[in-house]
Amino acid sequence: MKLRVRPWRVVLIIGLILSITLSGIAYAALGDRLLGRGSKGPEVKELQAKLVQLGYGLGKVDGKFGSKTEAAVRNFQKDHGLRVDGLAGTNTIKELKRLTSQNTNASGKAVGNKAIDTNLLARCVNAEARGEPYTGQVAVAAVIINRISDPAFPKTVADIIYQPKAFSSVDDGQINLPPSASALRAAQEAVNGSDPSGGALFFFNPAKTKNKYIWSRPQIKKIGNHIFTK
């Protein structure tokens, strides 16, 4: 049987394919359409990157809206007073864009996020106090901030965190894990001056340490599993 090629059909099919793929690639900007389970494309990638930046981990940033991305969107919505539906619609994307936008000076010039110290602090909180109550996370961040103003410690966040043997999370590499949303918020809060530790310089988990020095320090209080000391 002879195959009859109809030119107008070929044109139609090629046109259809082109319009579908191009609409997906060229005109996709975050916020143009509702994103949900099964969405794909660069705008999903942008959405994922912003979620990760704010501490909502979702595995790999791959441009595919899967179950992990949905869970991250849900958590984000829950934390930010939005309706929890797992869909990235106008409001959710607006809030995401607001929180990840750059800081500006008075005349509106972008000056970057200026969050270098907060970020490292959040990594340390995440690694040292994951699973602790939120107050305990703020307290861990506050301990590092308190060390800066104590004469016996180094004077920058990085110097304090990376001081040899100061934090076990540096020795076992957990410091390199991306910080969670609550760790980021706790770090931010401590940088802004909150100190639920009561001026502590050390903290330790009594079930895990036998270090004589740390047990000899005057204890201030216990929050979650950590004892905070002078």
């Binding site: 004469p151 016996a152 001081q163 040899p164 043997k165």
Partner: peptide, 19 residues
């Protein structure tokens, strides 16, 4: 002080040299 904070140690505590 910055250099001192990088010298290896087996535990960190209050340092009078640092102070």
């Amino acid at each position: 002080l910055k250099d001192f904070a990088q010298i290896p140690s087996d535990q960190a505590g209050l340092s009078y040299v640092g102070e």
